[in-house]
């Protein structure tokens, strides 16, 4: 051993390779098996993928950096369950690529914010958080009222489909029109969105302006979907 070390020390590149080799053992031992163990990510049976409108909202959420202040993961700690609801399961974000768990909480966790507030509140809050929470330090996002660009949606859904998110062929082709229809409850396509993605999907005019499908519609639809895509987590709190 010592002779090996003695000689290795003199060949710097070999030493570098050896250091990387040793340092990665911990990672390989701890991480690699997670890919084969069934329990790592148990995809809940009732998990539904995001609708195109919600997905567009998620993209905007990433673009605006909301994840820098908001986590989407309720940790398995008693106090977190008490405040936010059942702790997050890995399977709940099985269709998220990338997932947005985060760890920085300047604002509250958003994993179960869906349904907690009204659309009207979200719109007022995003335009200027001080409208509703006078002491808020969250930035204003007034530009979200501009029209939503649905052009990239079919490609985005197709990419996710290749990663294993169950988007059907019909969902891919209808992506752009589904996005518009979800925020127009009286339009022809509105019921089709629920047929495709489930009756639990909210089909509403989220931003209070039926004529225009805005980025606001998308972000609010996304926020209202958080924590509502599966009921799996609720079962952790059921009395046995």
């Amino acid at each position: 051993m010592l002779i090996l070390h003695y000689n290795l020390e003199k060949v710097s590149m070999a030493l570098v390779v050896a250091i990387i080799g040793v340092a990665s053992i911990g990672g390989i031992v701890e991480i690699a098996p997670l890919f084969t163990i069934d329990e790592t990510v148990k995809v809940p049976e009732d998990l539904r993928p995001l609708t195109p409108l919600e997905l567009a909202g998620r993209e905007i959420y990433i673009r605006e950096g909301c994840y820098a202040c908001h986590s989407q993961m309720i940790r398995s700690l008693a106090d977190e369950i008490d405040r936010y609801g059942p702790y997050s399961l890995a399977g709940e974000s099985a269709y998220d690529h990338p997932m947005l768990w985060g760890s920085k909480r300047t604002g509250p966790d958003l994993a179960r914010v869906g349904g907690k507030y009204s659309d009207y509140w979200h719109v007022a809050h995003l335009i200027n958080p001080r409208n509703v929470v006078s002491a808020s330090i969250m930035p204003s996002y007034p530009w979200l009222l501009r029209p939503l660009d649905t052009g990239k949606l079919p490609a985005e859904l197709a990419t996710l489909a290749r990663l294993g998110v169950p988007y059907s062929e019909v969902m891919l082709t209808a992506a752009a029109s589904d996005a518009m229809a979800q925020s127009r409850p009286d339009s022809d396509g509105a019921t089709e969105v629920q047929d495709r993605y489930g009756a639990g999907v909210a089909v509403r005019d989220f931003d209070g302006n039926v004529e225009k499908v805005s980025e606001m519609d998308a972000v609010v639809a996304y926020l209202q979907s958080l924590g509502t895509q599966t009921r799996a987590a609720l079962q952790t709190l059921e009395e046995e």
Partner: peptide, 14 residues
Amino acid sequence: DQGAEAVDGYRQIH
């Protein structure tokens, strides 16, 4: 099981 422990803790608070 961390999850079960957290739920136990939550029940204790409750």
